[in-house]
Nucleic acid binder design. Structure first.
Lengths: 347, 347
DNA sequence: ACTCCAAAGTTAAACGTTTAACAAACTTCA
DNA sequence: TGAAGTTTGTTAAACGTTTAACTTTGGAGT
């Protein structure tokens, strides 16, 4: 198999200079007569010419490459892409980006590292960063000169465009929903409550709803560890076994809610008959879970698409620096399914 | 903020030529005295120098970039990354690749397109391709000059390294498992049976098990459409409603099995009391499903890691062309959980 | 004192593009 | 007629690296 054709080959084949070829390649056909343009296109077709983005990146200083950073599990180095919440977002980001001619580099970031390296090594045109990272990470992120969209982060300052949901309100919504149905002893099971993370806000919303209903906030009722099915399961078992007074739980992620429900069942109680459970996210599995999960819904696909669009908007503007960094919030709503039931009035 | 430092800046700062810098960058320190090497390293640190992979790619003809191609839904352009089967694999591929200093470009491929474009545009060092594509796709794939690993594909010929499972055997295993438990009217619900695809093989295994047990193969019992929860749901409902004689179903993917089970319940029957269901894949959700899914297990994480390793092996050998294209099969086993029960002997 | 070699550097071409600057050949039109 | 444009093209530098080929210096061996 022969070597790939370069722009020089095309130029020679068409009997013109490489500049002419480059012009038609870049849609500057007004620099070239219709006939030669046709000749050049013919040559391109004939030689199966495909431009080299590396070379292009070098001179244009734009790689048509977007970094997508997603968190990884603490123990292993794996991406937590297994959580459908992330994969659904990535899938939507990818499709939107590809539509506009960008490719996507998917990467986790090693503990203590920044994504500065990736960004400059690869000359990224932009990055979408999901989840929350150590303080240090964001400090270095500000050095990065490219447009960045943060998903689900509460880092403040004018540096980044952010897309997320009103997590405090979401937490409030979920908790109030339970309270309105007569529950008063409500457990919170959640991933680790880190500063500026989404779960911190949801936690705040939980407390606000409690306060508003004059329910005493009991720290024993918050089960905080990691956002995983496994932890939900543990917490669920513990709740069902050791806290007969708890009648409802708010899990800050659907994935956790699933675990909680399983744990409760394992301990010999029923959902929602003995204990009600509400989740957060509405991943597509929640619909199909048995019983279908009542949860705080966010439109995950939209979230991904919006993030991609906001990023493109900045990248493709003429003055990327001038564009102001927005914060967009995807709306939240409760979707009622079958894991919450009103508390029977005591007879 | 100042412009990024280039190798020239480093050279100037250290008072040497760019060649010297390049040598220490590439671990050819024997070309340089220990003192200058140290001076250069100092300069690199001082200027926060990070090499540009585009430039490197241009001259080395290697981009340290691996393409990961995953199928997309037929209707929308989205990746079917939502299926945890794929995300679990991608996650493992990414971590293995990053460990060796490669980055990963995640992409779907548009209908009718090949991934030749991507490959040469980006100067990919290799590609991992999951799932099955039109005939045409593979024809073009052979033109691509880079090492390629196919996951779950039965395209034959010596061009590609393949990793997968023995799907025929898996289909056989699942079906035999049901038969051994007294079931004789066994439905198959599956994605579309395409030539050289995994489901075709599983289908073959299904038929072999039937034949071996002298059970008449009834085409009415195969429900073929798409590998999705939604279709499984439809099929499950149909089976429960219109085929009272069917006592077991083999779903060729766990995701489909979930749908089938829901559909069966929707139609007022119980799993496994009325109808048994066995799946395929053992995605991590299967453990947590209610009831936990009996299924044919493959080690998905291993599959991803192996694919990555096989690819690296070829890429990093001195004679990539000389290395022979292997086919590795991940072992299969039945994991018994709670969706299959032996048929009660008729009383 | 001579040759030969190793060590430590440097020079410059090459990789595949883009694009500013220039050049030639035509048009217009006063 | 000729000044001023316009159209269509070319030249060559630049982007940030790597690396083959060359140069200089200083010993070692005879």
């Amino acid at each position: 198999m022969k070597k790939r054709a370069t722009i020089k080959d095309v130029a020679k084949y068409a009997g013109v200079s490489t500049a002419a070829v480059s012009y038609v390649l870049n849609g500057k056909e007004y620099r070239v007569s219709p006939d030669t343009a046709e000749k050049i296109r013919e040559a391109i077709r004939e030689l199966n010419y495909i431009p080299d983005y590396s070379a292009r990146s070098l001179v244009k200083n734009s790689s048509k490459l977007i970094g997508v950073i997603i968190p990884q599990t603490e123990d292993s180095k794996q991406l937590i892409l297994e959580n459908p919440f992330y994969s659904e977002m990535v899938s939507n980001i990818e499709s939107r980006l590809r539509e506009s001619g960008y490719h996507l580099i998917l990467s986790g970031v090693d503990k203590g590292e920044s994504c500065l390296d990736l960004s400059v090594q690869r000359n990224l045109d932009g990055a979408i960063i999901m989840g929350i990272y150590p303080e240090q990470f964001y400090a270095e992120l500000k050095q990065v000169e490219i447009p960045i969209v943060l998903i689900d982060s509460y880092i403040n300052g004018p540096w980044f465009t952010k897309v997320g949901v009103d997590d405090e309100y979401g937490g409030y919504l979920a908790t109030r929903y339970l309270i309105e149905r007569g529950h008063r002893n409500i457990a919170l099971v959640t991933g680790s409550i880190r500063k500026d993370g989404v779960v911190e806000k949801r936690f705040l919303g939980y407390k606000r709803a409690l306060r508003e209903a004059d329910i005493f906030y009991n720290p024993d009722y918050v089960f905080e560890h990691s956002v995983s099915y496994a932890y939900g399961y543990e917490a669920g078992k513990a709740i069902a076994a050791k806290h007969p007074e708890i009648t409802a739980v708010f899990a800050t992620a659907d994935m956790v809610a699933f675990g909680v429900i399983q744990g409760i069942k394992e301990a010999g109680k029923e959902v929602p008959d003995d204990i009600s459970v509400i989740g957060f996210d509405d991943i597509f599995l929640s619909r199909m879970f048995v019983p279908p999960l009542t949860t705080v819904r966010q439109d995950i696909a939209l979230k991904g698409k919006r993030a991609a669009e906001l990023l493109l908007e900045i990248i493709e503007s003429d003055e990327p620096d001038k564009i102001d960094r927005k914060e967009v919030a995807i709306p939240l709503s409760i979707v009622e399914r079958q894991t919450v039931r009103p508390l029977k009035p005591r007879s």
